[in-house]
Computed example of a mutant assay.
Amino acid sequence: MATTASNRRQFLSLLGLSAVAVSCGTTATGAPAGESGTRTLRYQGWAGQVILPELAEDLGYLEDVKLEWVGNTISGPQDIQSAATGQTDFGGAFNGAVVKLAANNAPVKAVISYYGADRYAYNGFYVLEDSPIRSARDLIGKKVGMNTLGAHSEAMLDIYLQRGGLSRAQIGKVEPLVVPPVSTEQTLRQKQIDVAVLGGILRDKALATGGIRPLFTDHRLLGSFSAGTYVMTERFLRQNPGTARTFVTGVGRAIEWSRSTPREEVIARMTDIVTKRGRNEDTAPLRYWRSYGVAETAGRITGEELQLWIDWLARRGDIRKGQVRSSDLYTNEYNAAGRGDAAPSPASSSASKSGS
């Protein structure tokens, strides 16, 4: 765990990939694909949650492209590292992690935004109701539980502490700890940590239980913004342009479907997806879902959401000024959604038929 200022300077160390390792990525078939490419995409999911590609597939928006689940993750940096090294075909992470991955010479491109912060979808830093912690300075010497280090939550914590007037030495005395998301609320209530980072359905479930209060949230800190993108390797995009276009456009359409569809119907659909995949997951927290929080139409990337973290990482000294350019990090070429294309009607399912 990062317990000193020195260790904290290893921010995003999960992404210290060598160019050689990254260049060894393969297609989903395990060998270079021909012009026709693969129509199967390997990916990692999140326990108890429905990620946008899973929603897109269930809606029929991925057409003949199939998803192949290879396991779950709780870490964005780990997820995009897996994509960069060819263990999976796409991965998603906080945009600061994407920037750092590119700075380590990984030939990847961000292709679509998939999560963000708005008034419904945000990560909050919560303390117990009777906690003496009221300000950034009160966090010195305290433990903050989050899903992974070197990603969204640690970046938000760092910005909050900086704005609170703490020096780098003082910031180094705040201890971020990795706690599985499904255990974070319980870990806070048992006082094993002082602050818990909670988001989405897990946050709303904890708030419904009561006894906690927010110290701050990323939405209060930075307003509404797209926070993370899915990436694919440049090699995969060259070899499988049609598959990439179907995937990205389908995810974009799923974003817009989730915005325009009654919340109860979205939740019913998600519940049906989780139930059908048979991974022994609790579907109860899904009823708290409200939004994916993506700021732009169909998840299209503007570049500003990446430039924010390029500048921030450069100020921290994690990357050199001018080392990466936002225009080199992303492409909207594969996203036909949001350009006036008509979205296909969702495929029928028991969830959509149930109304609710």
Rank of each mutant, 00 (worst) to 15 (best):
D138K: 04
Q186K: 14
A117E: 10
G34R: 00
L14R: 00
R137I: 05
D282K: 11
R8L: 15
Y330W: 04
G76Y: 08
T233I: 05
Y120I: 03
G116W: 07
L67K: 08
Q186P: 00
Q170W: 04
D64W: 05
R213D: 14
N72Q: 10
I301Y: 10
N105A: 13
G165I: 08
A2P: 06
R277E: 10
S327D: 15
T29N: 05
T243V: 03
S291E: 06
P285D: 08
A121E: 06
V266G: 02
T38Y: 08
I133Q: 01
L59A: 03
V144T: 03
E304L: 15
T73M: 03
R279S: 09
A5E: 14
A56Q: 06
E154Q: 15
S224A: 14
D89P: 05
P285M: 09
R269M: 11
A208R: 13
L177T: 02
L221I: 06
I319K: 01
A254L: 05
Q162R: 14
A351E: 02
R238N: 13
E333A: 15
S18Y: 00
D64P: 01
T229I: 02
R277Q: 13
R163C: 06
P285E: 09
T249R: 00
R279K: 15
R320G: 14
L188D: 05
G34L: 06
G45N: 03
G25K: 02
Y126R: 02
D194R: 11
K276F: 06
W46R: 11
Y160M: 00
R320Q: 15
R137Y: 04
G164P: 06
A336L: 15
Y230M: 13
D218L: 05
G252S: 07
A28L: 00
V231M: 07
V65S: 05
E68G: 00
T261H: 07
Q49W: 08
L177C: 02
I51H: 00
G317I: 07
M270S: 03
R259G: 06
A31S: 11
S153D: 14
T27M: 11
R8S: 09
A56S: 08
D194A: 13
S13F: 02
G199Y: 14
S327K: 14
L101G: 01
L222G: 08
G338N: 05
L12A: 15
A196I: 12
A337S: 11
E35V: 11
M156N: 09
E265Y: 01
D218K: 04
T187Y: 02
W257N: 02
G355V: 12
E234G: 08
A21F: 01
S326F: 03
G150H: 03
N105P: 00
T249L: 08
I51Q: 04
S75W: 02
A295F: 12
N72E: 14
G116P: 07
T40K: 09
K353G: 05
V248R: 04
L62H: 07
A102S: 08
D64I: 04
A110R: 04
G145P: 08
L237A: 10
N95Q: 06
